[in-house]
Simulated assay, not measured.
Amino acid sequence: MGGNPVPIPTKNPDDRILCIEDLRKSALKKLPREVADFINCGSTDQITIHENTTAYNKYRVRSRVLIDVSKADTSTICFGQRSSFPLGCSPAGIQGLAHPDGELATARACAKKGVPMAISSFANYSIKDIRSAGLGVGPIKHAMQMYTLKNRELEEGIIREAERQGCTAIFLTADSPVLGVRYNEWRNDFRTPDGLGFPIYGWDTEKIRKQTHDDSFTNITDDSHNWARDIPWLRSVTNMEIWIKGVVTAEDTLMAIQLGCDGIIVSNHGGRQLDGVPATIDALPECVAAAQGRIRIHVDGGIRSGTDMFKAIALGAEYCWVGRPIFWGLS
């Protein structure tokens, strides 16, 4: 999908990257263990992160034959711009873990391939720099990922900057009142490596390294977030589209509709938050049925091939997003 791959000759067959699994294996050879654990692991017993990918294997494609595919077109519209195929780069934070260019490289790649990108509020580069990197290659749409913050002034400032730089939508991450219980981060005492900052929050590397990843998240995010307070507040401070990221139930789909949100992303945070929730491909049909066409529905989590994307679209998603493959590619 999105154009045929172009094989690059190599003398070592083990170096050939022909699929996402090859990309993952190649990345694991280069990444330090604690970094690989941070990227690849989920919360507690790793049930949801595992099922996000394996659940796709339960669904079968009813193939049709003798169909003219000579003019097949995988392009679609996302955020008002034509996208080469229905895949975007999810808001994945700390991409500098995998490559010095981090989010800048991802923005350039997305612009080159004609797909949108969501900017994590924990990016290692500023919104302006990320937008500029992409626009230097070609037209690109960006969404701005947000958490509900204890500091409303800071939250509004990030929104205003995203607007100034031309972002199209807010992806409000709604499944993270606190950080998921990630045993690997505790065992490794994971801290963002020296030299990487969070400029969107105004944090330099010295400030970040003084606290664990878990503590830094707890200190800034507001665990009293709720539908009735936060969606109307967002509407009062921005004209950007408002999307709710982290929906896995019909009930929350209906809440998003009731409060006039522009869309939802059926997501379980890549299995990194509450373990034991359904795989997103399994949650998708419930959300689609509840929506009855009244709200746009995207999906992320475990998508590793064009076939996975096809299944998600067939089950009612409008668009698909991926996170971990970004890190593997950067690595």
Rank of each mutant, 00 (worst) to 15 (best):
V61K: 03
T106A: 04
E318S: 12
K150E: 03
S84I: 07
D37H: 13
C287T: 00
F171Y: 12
R24W: 03
Y183H: 14
V178F: 10
W321F: 10
I158Q: 12
S43K: 07
V322H: 02
L330W: 01
Q145H: 04
S63A: 15
E286Q: 14
G202T: 09
G271K: 04
A312S: 04
D222P: 02
H298Y: 05
I17W: 01
W243G: 02
H269Y: 04
E185C: 11
G166V: 10
L66H: 09
D222E: 13
S75K: 05
N40T: 14
S43D: 05
W321C: 00
C287M: 01
F310P: 00
G276M: 13
A174R: 08
D223N: 15
A250Y: 04
V266A: 01
D73C: 10
C19M: 11
S26L: 05
I39E: 02
F79T: 00
L104E: 01
G138F: 13
E156F: 07
Q145R: 03
P325W: 08
D222N: 14
L274Y: 02
A107V: 11
Q292A: 13
A143P: 00
D300F: 01
I244F: 04
Q145A: 09
I130W: 01
P139M: 10
R24P: 00
V181Q: 14
A133L: 06
T48D: 08
